[in-house]
Design a protein around this nucleic acid. Sequence first.
DNA 1: CCTTATTTATACCGAAAGGTACATAAATTA
DNA 2: TAATTTATGTACCTTTCGGTATAAATAAGG
Lengths: 208, 208
Amino acid sequence: MSLRGRPRAFDPDLALRSAMNLFWERGYEGATLTDLAAVMGINKPSLYAAFGSKEALFRQAVSLYDKAEGRGIELALHAEPRVRDAIAKFLQLNLASYTDPDKPSGCMIVLAAMIGSPENAGTRDYLAAQRAETRNVLRQRLERGVAEGELAEETDCNVIADFYTTVLQGLSIQARDGATREQLRAIAQAAMAGWESMTTEPATHSEA
Amino acid sequence: MSLRGRPRAFDPDLALRSAMNLFWERGYEGATLTDLAAVMGINKPSLYAAFGSKEALFRQAVSLYDKAEGRGIELALHAEPRVRDAIAKFLQLNLASYTDPDKPSGCMIVLAAMIGSPENAGTRDYLAAQRAETRNVLRQRLERGVAEGELAEETDCNVIADFYTTVLQGLSIQARDGATREQLRAIAQAAMAGWESMTTEPATHSEA
DNA sequence: CCTTATTTATACCGAAAGGTACATAAATTA
DNA sequence: TAATTTATGTACCTTTCGGTATAAATAAGG
């Protein structure tokens, strides 16, 4: 497809990455089309031809973010065999991403469109759905811990998933407020301190 | 002062309260002057005469928010005699505010200006300073717990304050994402589950 | 009653927002 | 080489942004 005609003079993947970084830094409403086109190194008509609209560009940027920043972390969550280690690793990898000096601080999914004008409610809902998905991934990992006999049957995976999701989202704000990686690590460690109190190991079969 | 001249036809306190609610709902950049003037029941020139500018209005709205939503909660933090109870109460009162059905959900200080265009960096810094202040209030309450012999001298009050600040900020996002008061309560309870692991009671004097 | 001081409402300003028309440039197909 | 297709750059569109000039309205002071 599109073999005829003048070839495009830019790499859409690279341009999208630049757009992602600006959305990540300034948020959906804070990144203007003029700014976006500038960092992408293209003109607005090229932007529209390649990505459709500001909102369409944003969603593609979110997909790229999810792939570039989230995928590896989610894999680690599943790869870690013990559920407690998996959660701790998940926190640690996320906060490492939040404090990467080469990237905007905090999580784009949390920060880029939390609040704003009514006309952009659709964009906010889109990110809210992404956040809900992260929570579900955590919950499923916890439920696997139950299925594998690491956690008691009566473990409330919903609450534990909500708790770590909340901590994770708070960490994004801390990162934006200038917290260092070491500070976030200490916070994550504090969040793990409650693990034994929140969870119960299953009763052994030899007991009543 | 200002006895001469036409008297103003609106109550500045009521108007400011309306402005606060819109800023709380939509954020600094998401609330336009036209919208603000509309909910305040006045025209833009009246708004400027009474409040100065959009940013000045916002800061006054933040002050009002701090007074209306924060003051009582901070008092409770100090009034509660035992430090663990004080922190738990602080979380509980905040999450009750975040889920008041008559008000926008979540905390205005956390949500109203997290990200945006470079020209509003001053407003974001202003809110960041407010957030830092909340953290300091928590830390001071923890240090009082040390001073009063409830917590060991080596307790890291900075980390514990950072942790509960993080949870609190995460709770604002949860509230905006539609979490119920009961869900937030369960999350706060989970956050308190780590208390004993994070803190140590001081050694008794009769010990070595 | 007339001046002075202040608020009100309307109507407007320049700048910037998201988005696009249009003419030109560069490739393939015929 | 001519026709066709797609991308590019400039210049522009409409709307809305934060903010204001101006004149009428309403009070107190003289």
